[in-house]
Design a protein around this nucleic acid. Sequence first.
DNA 1: TAAGTTACATAATATTGTTAATGTAACCAC
DNA 2: GTGGTTACATTAACAATATTATGTAACTTA
Lengths: 199, 199
Amino acid sequence: MPRTGLTASEIRTKAIDATMAKMREDGFDKVRLTDIARELGLSHAALYAHFADKAALFDAVSERWLSAIDESLEAVCRKRGEPTDRMLSWMLVLHRAKVAKVLHDPELYKAFDLSTAVQKPFAQRHMDAMHGQLVGLVREAIAKRRLRDADPEAMAHVISDSLMAFHHPKLVAQHIGEKREPLLRLVLETVLRGLNLKS
Amino acid sequence: MPRTGLTASEIRTKAIDATMAKMREDGFDKVRLTDIARELGLSHAALYAHFADKAALFDAVSERWLSAIDESLEAVCRKRGEPTDRMLSWMLVLHRAKVAKVLHDPELYKAFDLSTAVQKPFAQRHMDAMHGQLVGLVREAIAKRRLRDADPEAMAHVISDSLMAFHHPKLVAQHIGEKREPLLRLVLETVLRGLNLKS
DNA sequence: TAAGTTACATAATATTGTTAATGTAACCAC
DNA sequence: GTGGTTACATTAACAATATTATGTAACTTA
């Protein structure tokens, strides 16, 4: 048994907490495993029992945030009401989550942005999860005759790509401070109208 | 009178040529003014009579390419036929120009990408020029009853932003090698259909 | 045997001194 | 007086080295 008296999962949690704090304080590229370990009262080598390497610890930080987003989005999906209204809420939640992160947690955002840029598996899983949710909403909308009866996968791609400017990490960061929600609404309304009609 | 026997404009052109060649050969961050100057048979200080600084020379390289794009797009605008068809051509020309640059001139593309990321004035002018063209096409489409009668400025923004994934420098680079033209067509068709109908 | 240790090889990162490039000034030629 | 020169100060890049951090191995303990 460990000297720490903590379970593996508790250690993981504390390590992630400490890493987040350090990222915020000194910048994500100044985080050292030895500092994190000292924070937990461990030798740095002990961390390797819980994380494959430094990158895995960093990924865990981003993953925690992405999971929270996924849950918020999932909650929107589960709501009752018009599927198209939920699509708008869904996009707004996603957009606002990214905007808030850039503004209030820029260092964590940078780390996340880097991870997505190199297509890390956890980022891909997040994208897949979001795409799945969007396909679900599209199916509902088709069932309720709010969108025309066509391939839901393709329609979800159209929605996701046409709103790229409002959720892609780099673009959200670029347009920070611009109040782009009205344009987001306009674009989504337009796209949904376009997906409603027969070609 | 100059010893070179060349006009200022010829020197500028040659300097830009030499800079492009060097960027391609050694990478854009390896370009030295002293090399460019030697290529032209000048001292490096002489370049400062033609360019405010190194950045201005680099900008001129990107600007030449952007001007060529602007002209290609302008040519599409001037064509006859359905305005909506021309919008598709317009977007395809823009998309293909960026894709081709990433593939065949990656170092120049990087320099261009950096300049746009920091919002250089010449990049802004290019954006403004493109927006103006798009507004023109939208006006034509409205006149021909192909789009509904609403604010052309706003509609151009909707079109431009919903197709961001296909023309933003960073996103084009990210999706290189993906054959995204079919999705581009799908998105644009959808958006135009959405802009055609009364809300 | 899972969770920890210390010890150590390897890989990154700072640090330093040196060299080279950029940008400016004062001056020159057509 | 525009387009050029050389000379020089300031910055930035480079290379060599020292230091620090990462990741692994061999071993320890509950």
